[in-house]
Nucleic acid binder design. Structure first.
Lengths: 198, 198, 198, 198
DNA sequence: TATGAATGAGCCTTCATTCAT
DNA sequence: CATGAATGAAGGCTCATTCAT
C-alpha cells in the first residue's frame, strides 16, 4: 500500500488537474464556442463526468475567467520584466512584441475564446480584474510607442492609432497562425514592429 | 380610402421590415452576445412578439447569416468597383482602405457579431457562402499589396503578413472606434495605409 | 357581368365549400394524424390560406366534430331506414352489415380519424352528441343480434360479445381495405355475417 | 451502511425505473392521448421533473416506441412458444387467442395508444421494427387459419378475411373490456374462436 | 474524488387563432 | 371572401447546476 499522500501533495495534484481542465476547456471553447458548448459536452471531451467539473470550478463562467487569467497573467508579468531590463524604446518594443506574439501563438485557444467573449468581458460584473489587466498591458505598449514617437525616430502617425493597429494585428495573429507555417514567431513579430516603426 | 397595396408593395414592405430586423438584431447581439440573447429578449428589444420574428427568418441562425450578408455584400461590391476605376496600386489601396474603414465603422455592430461568432462561421455547414465572400475580399486586398510590393515602392516585409496585419488592424477598429472621437474615418484609414506602405 | 348571385346561391356555395373542406380534412388527418397536422399545413393541402379556414369553422376541434358528423349521420339514418323495411332478423342484419361496411369503406378516412381520436370523443365535453349517435347505432345492431339469438337460429355465444366482435371486425375494415382489392364490399360484409350467424 | 451498489445493480435500477416510466406513460397516453399529453403533464403524473424523463428516453417519440415494444415483444414470444408446443391447428388457435386476449386485456393502455397512433406507426421512419413485429404476429395467426381451412374442418369464408376479422375483434377488446365485467378472459377468447371456427 | 440522477429554468420554435386590409 | 402579419401560449427539449452515494 503506497503511503497516503500528504496534504501538500493532494493540493498539488488538485492544482495540476485544475490547470489541465482550464487548458482543455480553452481548446474546446475555441472550437465550439463558449456558449455552444454545454457543460456535459465539455466534460465528455475532458474525460470526466459532468458533475465532476464542479469540484474544480464554481461554474461555467468561473471557468471562462480562469481561461482569461491563464492568458493574461503571464503576459503581463513578462512584459513588466522586459520593461525593467533597460534598452532603447525601440529595442524594448521589439522584445515585447516578440514575447507577445509568442504568447498569443502559444495560447491561441485562449485568445480565440477571449475575443469571442469580448462582450461579456467588457460588460460583466465579475470581469473587472480581467479588464484591468488588459488595460494595464495596453498602457505599457502605449508608453513604449510614445517614447518612440518622442525620440523623433519615427514618423508614427499617431501613438494611439498605432497602438490600436498593433493590438489589432498582434491579437489577430491567433486567427491565422498555424504551427508549421511559413513564418516563425520571431519573423512575424519583427514584421509587425517594422510596420510600426518604419 | 388608400388604394389596396399590390403584391409588389407588400413584398417591398416585407423586405424593409426584414432589413430593419437584421439591423436591430445586429445591434442587440453586438451588445449582449448572440448566444446570450434569447429570441424573446431580442423580440422585445425589436418591439415585436417572439413568434413574429419567424415571419422574417426561419430561425435564429438564419438571422445571424443575414447579419453577415448585410455586412459583407456591400463591402465586396464597393471594393470591386474601386478596383475597376484604375489608378496606381497605392492609390487604389488608399481608396479601398478608406472605404473599408468607413464600412467597418458604420457597421460596427455587424463586425462585432461577425468576430464573436467566428467559430460558427468557420465551421458551420450553412456558412460556406459567407466564408467565400470573406475570402474573396481578402484576396482583393492581397492582390493590391502584391502589386505594391512588385512596384518596389515598398519595403513590405511580406505581402501575406502585411495582409494579415492590415486585416487585423482594420477589423479591430470596430472595437474601439467611437463616433465623435478624436480621429475621423479618413484619418484612421490613412494612418493604417501609412503604416503599411511606409 | 354575370348576375350577382342571390343569397340562396351564396349559401349553397358556402355549404359546398364547407363540405369539401371537411372531406379534405378527413383525408389529411387520416394520413398525418389530427394533432400532428397543424392548421397551416392543413390549409396548404386544401389550397387555402391558414386564416381562410376560419370562415368555415370556428376552430380545429369543430372541424373534427364535423368529420365525425359526416361519418355518423348518414350511417344512422340508413340503418334506421333498413330496420323499418321489415324482413327476418337475419335478413335485416345482412342488409345492415352490407350498408355499414360500404359506409366504412367509403369513409375510410373519417373512420381512421374517428378511431385515432377515440379518447377525445369518449371524454370531451362537446362530444356528447357524437357519443350518443355511436351508442344509438350500437343498440340497433345489438337489438338485431338479440332477435337472432332469441329465434334460436344461432349458436351465438353471447349477444353482447358478438356485438363487440362485430363492431371490431367491421370498423377494423377501414384499416386494411384497399379499393381494388380481392374482395368487394358485399363479399366482405357477407363474410362477417357468416361468421356471426354461423 | 449498505454496500455501495455495483455497476450491475445501478443498471438494474435504471432499467426498472425505465420500465415503470413506460408503463406509466402508456396509462397516461391512453387516457389523454399521446399528442394531447405534454411532456410536463406526463412528468407530473409520473412524479418526476420534466427534464428527468430525458435520462430514460431520448424524446417523446422514443417513449412511444418503447410502449409499443413493451406491448409486442412478449406477445410475439409467447405466440411462438405456443406454436412450438404441438397440437391440432384448432387447439393451437384456441390457445393462441386465449393468450392474445389476455395480453390485450392486461396491456389495454398500450393497445389504446397503439391504435391511436396507427398513422405514425404505419408511416414513420423509426417504426419499421414495430411494423415488422406486428406483421410477423399476423402471419402466425394467418398460418394457423390456413391450416384449419385446409383441414376442411371449417367453413371459413376466406382465410384472409377471417384473419382481418379476428384481428379486429381481438384488438377491439381493449376498448370495451372492464376488469370485473361479466365475461372473463377465457370466455371472451373462446367466444371469438367459436365465431371463427364455427 | 467522482458519479449518475434529478431539477427548475429557460431555450428555440410552432401553434391555433385573430384581424386589418 | 381571403390574405399575410402578428400574437400569446405552449410545445419538446437542453441547460447549468446540485446532491446522495
Amino acid at each position: 500500500m503506497p503511503p497516503k499522500p500528504g496534504r501538500a501533495a493532494l493540493q498539488e495534484r488538485y492544482d495540476r488537474r485544475q490547470a489541465e481542465v482550464v487548458l482543455g476547456a480553452a481548446r474546446v471553447f475555441a472550437r465550439r464556442g463558449y456558449d455552444q458548448t454545454s457543460v456535459p459536452q465539455l466534460a465528455e471531451e475532458l474525460g470526466i463526468a459532468a458533475g465532476g467539473l464542479y469540484h474544480y470550478f464554481g461554474g461555467k463562467e468561473q471557468l471562462l475567467i480562469a481561461i482569461c487569467d491563464q492568458l493574461m497573467d503571464p503576459l503581463l508579468t513578462e512584459a513588466q520584466a522586459l520593461l525593467a531590463e533597460g534598452g532603447t524604446a525601440e529595442e524594448q518594443l521589439r522584445a515585447l512584441v516578440r514575447s507577445w506574439v509568442a504568447h498569443v501563438v502559444e495560447h491561441r485557444d485562449h485568445m480565440l475564446v477571449f475575443q469571442q467573449e469580448r462582450h461579456v468581458i467588457d460588460h460583466g460584473r465579475q470581469w473587472a480584474q480581467v479588464r484591468e489587466r488588459r488595460k494595464r498591458f495596453e498602457r505599457l505598449v502605449e508608453g513604449l510607442l510614445r517614447r518612440i514617437a518622442d525620440d523623433g525616430a519615427a514618423r508614427l502617425p499617431d501613438a494611439r492609432l498605432t497602438l490600436s493597429a498593433l493590438l489589432g494585428m498582434v491579437n489577430h495573429t491567433a486567427q491565422w497562425y498555424r504551427p508549421r507555417g511559413r513564418l516563425d514567431v520571431a519573423a512575424i513579430a519583427d514584421g509587425y514592429v517594422d510596420l510600426v516603426v518604419g
